[in-house]
């Protein structure tokens, strides 16, 4: 499926990203999508180790914060290729996690050590050439049934851009691979989200005005591990046990769904669709269904013609 050395486009989805980081070898983390910038939306997800902000890129530049040049302690890599930018944003978050309880795994640890003395451009090159990371990333590529489908223009071929926000030793950084360095957004005391939330509000307000689509993902602590710990700590207190068990059930169901969705995502439906067409044809249903579909399209087109005449 994947051409040698290339990074395929992958879907931006919490189920994809959660499984992706597990396969990188990370433990104790998952990815959640944020649907609102309300304080409570963030509170529910804590601890939050990093945010990934996706928006349709129009080539304009953000003028918030201060760009840092040269060597920085915070991990920052320049973006070398487009298709990997979601994964690059996630890896940037993972490599900047300071909590010793979170294990990012051998692959990422080795990569971090190997590139520690590199400048951002060379870090970006190294990331692009990291075979194991690319292999995992590409295993989530949306199905390519045919060699040639890359030539067919897709309607969602618009360029999306991902940037990461991370807390690092008391300061909030924005990691945008198109910038020369990490952007320093100032210090925080207890809660880094209190710095990043207004920042995102301003940015989304600006984007909403120009109808740019965006979404927001959070790299957070493993909810199931957390709930199991909670269950142990309240053992015996029936009032809490039922509540926590229900949350565990919901989380497990969510993961089971992610798993099924990822299996569906990776599957090639070509033989199935061919079989469907054959069966429909054998049953004599193919022509009537086609004519019906044609009528539907004609009916959909008709009102448009009327309005263009008036």
């Amino acid at each position: 499926m994947a051409v040698n050395g290339q990074w395929c486009l992958i879907e931006s989805d919490p189920g994809v990203f959660s499984e992706l980081i597990k396969e990188f070898g990370c433990n104790g983390l998952q990815v959640e999508e944020l649907w609102s910038l309300d304080e409570s939306a963030f509170t529910d997800l804590k601890p939050i180790y990093g945010l990934i902000f996706l928006f349709k890129w129009k080539g304009d530049s953000e003028e918030q914060g201060k760009v840092l040049y040269g060597d920085t302690e915070v991990f920052f890599a320049k973006q070398v290729i487009n298709n990997a930018c979601a994964t690059q944003a996630i890896i940037s978050v993972l490599l900047n996690i300071q909590n010793p309880e979170i294990k990012i795994g051998d692959t990422l640890t080795q990569f971090k050590e190997f590139t520690s003395s590199f400048d951002p451009a060379l870090k970006g090159m190294s990331l692009t050439n990291a075979d194991r990371l690319r292999e995992v990333h590409n295993s989530f590529a949306r199905q390519n049934m045919f060699e040639f489908d890359s030539k067919i223009p897709e309607k969602d071929d618009d360029v999306y851009h991902f940037v990461a926000f991370v807390p690092y030793k008391g300061r909030v950084y924005e990691l945008d691979g198109l910038k020369p360095g990490p952007i320093d957004h100032g210090s925080y005391t207890d809660d880094w989200i209190s710095v990043v939330r207004p920042l995102l509000q301003t940015r989304i307000a600006k984007h909403a005005a120009t109808e740019i689509t965006f979404n927001l993902m959070a790299v957070v602590g493993d909810k199931l591990l957390d709930l199991q710990k909670q269950l142990e700590s309240v053992m015996g207190d029936e009032a809490f046990v039922g509540d926590i068990k229900e949350k565990i059930r919901v989380e497990e169901e969510k993961r089971a769904n992610y798993k099924i969705e990822n299996i569906r995502r990776k599957h090639n439906y070509l033989p199935l669709i061919m079989e469907m067409l054959k069966i429909l044809s054998e049953k004599g249903m193919l022509l009537p269904l086609t004519l019906k579909a044609k009528e539907k399209i004609a009916a959909k087109d008709a009102p448009k013609k009327e309005s263009s005449l008036s």
């Binding site: 199905q143 040639f148 489908d149 030539k151 067919i152 969705e261 569906r264 995502r265 439906y269 669709i273």
Partner: peptide
């Protein structure tokens, strides 16, 4: 639910584009 899933729909769209190109 698989046949009604967005993933299968995406596969159908891909198949349709490929068919349109004549290369199937």
């Amino acid at each position: 639910s698989t046949l009604n899933s967005p993933q299968f729909q995406q596969g159908l769209q891909l198949f349709s584009s490929a068919f349109k190109s004549g290369q199937l």
